[in-house]
Design a protein around this nucleic acid. Sequence first.
DNA 1: CTGAAAGCGCTTACAG
DNA 2: CTGAAAGCGCTTACAG
Lengths: 338, 338
Amino acid sequence: MSARVRIKDVATLAGVSTATVSRALSSPDTVGPATRDKVMEAVKATGYRINAAARDLRQRRARSILILAPNLSNTFFSRIFAAIQEEASAVGLTVQISDSRIGRDRLLSLGYDGRADGIVLLDGSLDPELVNGWHLPLVQLSEWNDAYDAPRLGIDNRAAAGLAVDHLADLGHRALLHVSGPEDNVLALTRREGFLDTAESRDLARIVLPGDFTLEAGAEAARRWSRLRDRPTGVFCASDECALGFISECVHMGFDVPGEVSVMGFDDIDFADRFLPSLTTIHQPRKEMGRAAARRITQMMQGSEGTLRRSLPPATPIAARLVKRSSTAAPPAAPSAG
Amino acid sequence: MSARVRIKDVATLAGVSTATVSRALSSPDTVGPATRDKVMEAVKATGYRINAAARDLRQRRARSILILAPNLSNTFFSRIFAAIQEEASAVGLTVQISDSRIGRDRLLSLGYDGRADGIVLLDGSLDPELVNGWHLPLVQLSEWNDAYDAPRLGIDNRAAAGLAVDHLADLGHRALLHVSGPEDNVLALTRREGFLDTAESRDLARIVLPGDFTLEAGAEAARRWSRLRDRPTGVFCASDECALGFISECVHMGFDVPGEVSVMGFDDIDFADRFLPSLTTIHQPRKEMGRAAARRITQMMQGSEGTLRRSLPPATPIAARLVKRSSTAAPPAAPSAG
DNA sequence: CTGAAAGCGCTTACAG
DNA sequence: CTGAAAGCGCTTACAG
């Protein structure tokens, strides 16, 4: 009933010291059975719950993982968050989620304000000096930065982009367009590289248009594509959202997908399967990624303080795979290009 | 450089007491200018950051908002999370996000473990006794439960469902289908009531099919709809995901949307606009909802401890509105029903 | 304007 | 097996 029951209240009621209450709760077998029962009864009677803030301060650990992502409203992240939360919760850890674009000073504090003792970082664009200045276990997930001194988890984006190009080439496309992500984004860069390299090795014509992973960027790219003299018949977008925007705009302009142009994405978000046409894409196992990151950071948090960030055994690699659906097909028989 | 700089280290370096360092940092004008400069210099030199856990314990506040939602991977929530985070961050509060389905005991602790001092609850299905047992300011967002003793923010779901029915009726539909959400969900219940009441008042035939807000539930409902003898020509789904699943399955089965059947959703998620056909739906201002909740909980947290939960001025009501797009149209001229 | 001291609510060597 | 005491790293009346 009362707003705040402290350990002292329980101790008084049970007629023991606070030390004993603490022990009865955290390591019951170090306490005599009779005492234990008395304590448990008092706990029940008072409705006592440990004040985590006090325990954390005393033990100098927060039992909390901080997730830092560049955009909380991005659909791609939500399933990853859920997976991390699930894993963390199972081992008694709480999860804090914060936008990684909250400003340098605030970000600096987060790294060592005593409220988190491990970080899962989904942003490769932060200042490495800042990130490496955090004295906390850190795991990079999805995005990464070679200058961060921390293990990284994620798929091989370059190879995955190659899978996409191979798929379009195998269907018979001879000219490809890639709609890229933001200029400075490591995922965008590696996917673009994978696109260009594989397209070159398969001797395909290739163009890259800028984008930023969003629906609107895809739509804009479609408009630019439509004005091209020699329109590529195969399009590989750097994200599913972008691909859905591209297809949507194509259809609005009167093009048939995949009849006139094949379009594929990257990520395999939930909607990919239900879009019309359903979207051929590269599947990223987001749940698996989240779980792997959670496990890894948990390991690192349990390790001794002296453990070097890089010194843990490598995680199981995470595999991306091609998912063929209805948005890609053989190019039109009559070439649209002169 | 060193892993942990404490306030004592700063005090020693600056040649003052820890009290002075604390004051220089939290209320600079209560400290002499020369002293202040010395302290600031020492802070800079050591790279000191306040240990939030210690400050929180001492001040008995955590400067943190806890968001509790029934499913972190639900697309509907992501933009709300982002908005709350943004608002909270602006006033120096951190945000913790947790799944509200983590189990009774864990949930109980969350309410008063000293790590959060305000809760935004997006789940109306928790045990009211548990929720009301939390001695923390609480705001209900989107979902609600009349047994929770806390203010609620969100749209009028019943009226919004009426908007949907009116739209279909105005187009000329005489028989409607509603695909509902989970049986025990308050949003599902009120939307269904709004559907039934308005359909009755407009003298329309009406059927309800079960669902659970998901893409797959929508697809399943579409299959059931297709087997109906007298197929309703107007369909109102309790969520956008459900509507997209419904449409997708209809198209796969060979039906034209909206030529043969009009389908609309609820929420106006990002994809609604880009789906093919674009989705007529009820717009919920998710960003506004998140901001309103963040502001409200912040107010409540600043209020005196004695402030009753319900005693604050009512928040500005949040308005839902109909967004007409391409998934709804007049019913087919030749009625499909005998 | 500044410092010594108490205390937030716990946990944990240290004795016994 | 149990308790008294110290201490996690801060902040804040209370003196001066």
